[in-house]
Design a protein around this nucleic acid. Structure first.
Length: 109
DNA sequence: TCTGTGACCGCGG
DNA sequence: ACCGCGGCCACAG
């Protein structure tokens, strides 16, 4: 019997745990950090399956457009934005400037 | 084995 | 800047 590849999810969670507060990463970057370059969707699935009371910084993961990937107006979306703002992340018109808050993307201006 | 689905990504129009 | 389309990876039926 074949059970879900928890190895990959494990790697993703590990990478996620290494993301510092006040910084964010995209699903694609997170997957890459976990050693899965083209598995952005897997990262998304991993977070979706994540339990509610997890201690992992799931909220520091956003899409490549600098936007929160949860349904607009959903509770999760609002909670994620609130958590990020509490860490100092700034939203401009619903979007985050990855140049400033992206962990891998070094800031400049 | 083949088809459909998803907290994604990047390119064009 | 918004929308649509194809591509990608892993999983479920």
């Amino acid at each position: 019997m074949k059970q879900p590849n928890q190895q990959h999810l494990q790697a993703i969670f590990l990478a996620l745990a290494s993301v510092p507060a006040g910084k964010v990463v995209t699903y694609g970057q997170l997957a890459a950090m976990a050693g899965l370059p083209r598995a952005a969707r897997l990262a998304g699935r991993a977070l979706r399956d994540l339990p509610t009371g997890t201690n992992l910084p799931w909220h520091r993961v956003i899409n490549a457009q600098g936007r929160i990937s949860l349904p607009e107006g959903s509770e999760g979306q609002h909670r994620q934005q609130t958590l990020l703002e509490a860490e100092g992340v700034v939203f401009v018109k619903g979007k985050i400037n990855l140049r400033r808050f992206g962990w891998l993307a070094q800031d400049d201006a």
